[in-house]
Each structure stands twice: as C-alpha cells, then as structure tokens.
Write a protein that binds this DNA or RNA. Structure first.
Lengths: 178, 178
DNA sequence: CTAAACTTTCAAAAAAAAATGAAAGTTATT
DNA sequence: AATAACTTTCATTTTTTTTTGAAAGTTTAG
C-alpha cells in the first residue's frame, strides 16, 4: 500500500468511525482530509476532493472551527479563505472530549439535578429505591465529570507518562502458581 | 413534583439522553422503565406503558439483555417472560462503557493497525508527517483502551474512593492571594 | 458606486436509522 | 396431535438526520 492510497483509506476510515462517534461522516472526512494535507485547502478544494456540495462544506467547516479542530488561514494575495487542521493529536483529543462531554454528559447532569429535587414525603420502599437510583446516577456522573475535566486540562506528557502508568502496572505473579 | 411524575420525567429524559449516547430512544426508555419498576415487567407491560409495537419491544429487550443491562425473570405459574433491569448503577456504567468501547474504540484500533503497515520508502516531509499522524493516533487510542479496560474491570469502591481522589485534590491557595 | 468574488442560508431532497405489525415460528397444555 | 399462548422475524413505513443547491448576503477592488 502506498502513501496516496493510505491517505485515501485514512479519510474513508475516519469518516466511517466518525458516525459511530456521533459525528457526521462529512465532518469527519473533512477533518481527515485537512489532517493529511500539508497545504491549507480552500472550500473549493474540499468540495472537489470529497465530492460534496458547497453548502455542506461551508456548514461543516464552520462546525469544525467551533470545535477547535480547524483554523482559518489567510494567504496573502488570495481572497478566498483557506483551512488547516490542528495537527497535535493530543489537542485534537481534548477538543473531541470537550465537545462530547458537552453533548453527552452535561445534559445528563442538568436533568438529574432537577430530578433530585423530587419530594420524598411518601416513604415507601419503592420511592426510596427511586431516590437512591437518582442519587447513584448523580454520584457516577459527577465522577465522570471530574475525570473528564481533568483529562481535558491535563498536558499530553502527564497523560502519557504519569497517568497511564497508574493503569499499566504489571500484576505480581504469586508464588503459589509455581 | 411527586414520585409518579418524576419517574415519568426520568423515563423521558433517559430516552432523550440515550440518543446523544448513540442508543436508540426506545432502548433507553425501556431501560429507564425497568429501572424504576420494582416489579418485573412483561413484554405487554412495556408495550402498553411506552406505547410501542411488539416487534420493537422484543428486539430492543433482546439488545438490552445482550448489553447485560436487563435480565429475564421467570415467574412461577406464568408462561410469559418477565424482565428486570440491573439496578447496580456501577454495573450499568460498566456495561455501557464496555459496549461503547466495542463500538467506538475497537474499530479505530483495527483500522489504524492496518494503516500502520503502510510502506515508508519515500522519505518526503509530507509522508513522514503522515506516518507520524498514524503513530500519534495509535498511541492515544492505546492509552484510551488501557484506561477504559481498567475502568471496566475495577470495583465501584476503588473508583469512588481511590481513583477519584487522584483528581479531586484541592488546589493549594497561595499566600499572595491575601 | 458597482461588479465580481466569494460566503452563508435554508427549504427541499436524499439517505440513514428506527419503528411497525402482520405473518411465521415456538413452546406448553390438554 | 391440536390448540392456545406467547415470541421472533423482517419487509414496509415512519421518523430523523444529513446533504444539496439555488438564492440571498457580504466583502473587496477598481
């Protein structure tokens, strides 16, 4: 497999993976295309390479900019806008984490904060169970929130060097196995 | 807000949240309904309470069972099957993490393992960058994999007591603030 | 100011995902 | 073995999400 082919496969694969990440195929493909392009691309370049419409290209690039995954780049003497992708994949991960947390976790917390205010005057077993369910979900979602916030803030090296080591400790092999 | 109302809101909210988690609204709603029911429910109970079709109910309950979120329960003297939800929310989180990892992270790793085998004979800057991109994505996805596997295995108390504390250390307030 | 170059919007079309329900399949009872 | 009670399947319909493209809007240059 040569590099050209590999890049095409990358764009295709990133697009497919995007769907399972709740990101539209086009959005993921544009992102991938910009990631593998050494030069900034114009809206027309993107349209042509991915065979998509102008409207779709414009809207999707805007969204990528909102996420912080793509930047506008001005080229002197050119009137058109050009776009480049954020190439630091740790930064990319942070953007994706932040946006997915915003979409997937924050609404959960909001809903349960309001649900937690349910009055608990009837003390049947059934109702106690419901109150506990709400509390449990809140505890866990706050835990998830704490972890995600930390991951979003943290430096790449801290993640790769300190944090990951917490998880990769080898299991001690006990003598009684021998 | 009384408990009945709160439960209905819970089912509704869990359904809506489900969509943003890549889970169909019905699947999340059935799950929520079973979570708030103290008694096991039959397929007919579910159909009636959520106003959905038999086919949909059956397929979705099967999927919830596959995920490990719902169990069949046999009631003596009843021919029909009854269903109950896993009530331990930590266990529920694990199931959801495991299934989402399977859907969202594992395919990523597979794709990039195959892309990593791209030949690197032409040593242009451009190609070096591409190779680096692939490597970076692999490093990060392996990191994510390690963390998720650990979280899926770990005990609830370890998560809430030891793990979370790593993240919630209070910032030292320095004197120059005063 | 005006035309050209480029960008944005949004109603309508297409595609993808989810739900329906009738028919086929199973299993337990008599 | 026949019937009744219940479950599963899947082609079709409905709903939701994504994309299109023509029209409207903006900005720059002369």
């Amino acid at each position: 497999m040569d590099i050209i082919e590999a890049k095409e496969q990358f764009i295709q694969a990133w697009g497919t993976l995007g769907s399972s990440w709740g990101i539209s195929r086009t959005m993921a493909q544009i992102h991938a295309l910009l990631l593998v392009s050494s030069e900034p691309l114009s809206a027309d370049d993107i349209m042509e390479k991915l065979q998509i419409s102008r409207g779709n290209t414009n809207m999707t690039v805007r969204e990528l900019i909102d996420w912080g995954l793509v930047y506008k780049e001005i080229i002197v003497g050119e009137r058109r806008e050009f776009f480049v992708a954020e190439k630091d994949m740790w930064q990319v991960s942070r953007c994706i984490l932040r946006e997915r947390k915003k979409r997937e976790l924050d609404p959960l917390k909001r809903v349960f904060d309001s649900l937690a205010q349910v009055s608990n005057n009837s003390q049947t077993k059934d109702n106690q169970d419901f109150i506990k369910l709400i509390k449990d979900i809140q505890t866990l979602s706050e835990g998830a929130d704490t972890i995600l916030n930390k991951l979003i803030k943290v430096e790449k090296n801290w993640f790769l060097e300190s944090f990951l080591k917490l998880f990769s400790k080898k299991k001690k092999i006990s003598k009684d196995k021998a």
